[in-house]
């Protein structure tokens, strides 16, 4: 499990994560929702040891991330960030090979190559394997990055807004893939989502963040309620039952 013990992060005098204690990373998918600036990326940053908490602690499987050797943690935890800008030109194959670095240290074994091929195959990227990332559509590029974290072969996979820039079809495609990763490969996925209907459809548990605090944490049916969503997003959200599933209407 990934556990935050009173984790606090401040920038100057603004507290962007305020004494957060939560534990996630159980089987299946946990969705992290909340308005812009709520502190979702900051929380993932603390877990992924990109940021250091000003107070509190983050444990992965009972070990403090700050005292665990980084190279070792990289075999347990993979993070896909919200934006991935690369200066050099890399192909899909290149970045997936780099995703294997924690295991290969740059020398790919036969087993490493199998992992790489499987990840590329899993995201149906075979025909784009040798394309440069800047020659791909946003959705294909996003898939390439997911293939990269998949090749890292970690127990925990943290995805920060993987649906960014995607059209309807690709959003659904990616979420189905994430679901399969959780069900078939046993990955424990923590995913930041803005579209709460996707969260409600695919996640097992939803954690809602607002102003650096956790305001809701429950199974999806407890979250998909107008009063809860209003508390999270500070806007009126209508929730209807369609085919036995709660669907949020927030288009005005």
């Amino acid at each position: 499990m990934i556990t935050l013990h009173g984790a606090t992060k401040r920038y100057g005098r603004t507290t962007v994560l305020d004494d957060v204690s939560v534990s996630f990373g159980g089987e299946g998918i946990t969705a992290l929702i909340g308005p812009n600036g709520a502190g979702k990326s900051t929380l993932l940053g603390l877990v992924g040891r990109l940021l250091h908490p000003d107070a509190g602690r983050v444990d992965v499987d009972g070990r403090d991330v700050r005292s665990t050797p980084s190279a070792q943690l990289a075999k347990t935890l993979a993070v896909l960030r919200q934006d991935n800008h690369i200066v050099a030109r890399l192909t899909v194959q290149d970045i997936v090979e780099l995703g294997r670095f924690p295991h290969s240290r740059g020398r790919l074994t036969v087993a490493d190559r199998e992992h790489i091929d499987r990840a590329i195959d899993y995201l149906s990227l075979d025909e784009y394997r040798h394309r440069f990332l800047d020659e791909l559509s946003g959705g294909q590029r996003q898939r390439a990055f997911i293939a990269m974290v998949l090749a890292q072969d970690t127990k925990y996979v943290l995805l920060d807004e993987p649906l960014n820039n995607l059209d309807l079809r690709h959003m659904t495609e990616i979420m189905k893939l994430v679901r399969r990763m959780a069900d078939e490969l046993g990955r424990r996925v923590i995913v930041v989502l803005h579209d709460i209907n996707f969260a409600a459809t695919y996640a097992d548990r939803i954690v809602a963040l607002r102003d650096g605090r956790i305001v809701a944490d429950a199974a999806r049916d407890q979250i998909m309620r107008p009063d809860v969503l209003r508390a999270v997003y500070d806007t009126t959200v209508d929730v209807r039952e369609i085919d036995g599933r709660p669907v949020a209407l927030y288009y005005g």
Binding site: I86, I95, G99, G106
Partner: peptide
């Protein structure tokens, strides 16, 4: 350090995520 340099190409956050100090 050549393989590590390859990882550094991805930028600091990604390199840390892949276990580079």
């Amino acid at each position: 350090l050549l393989p590590t340099l390859d990882v550094l190409t991805l930028g600091e956050p990604a390199a840390i995520g892949l276990g580079v100090s």
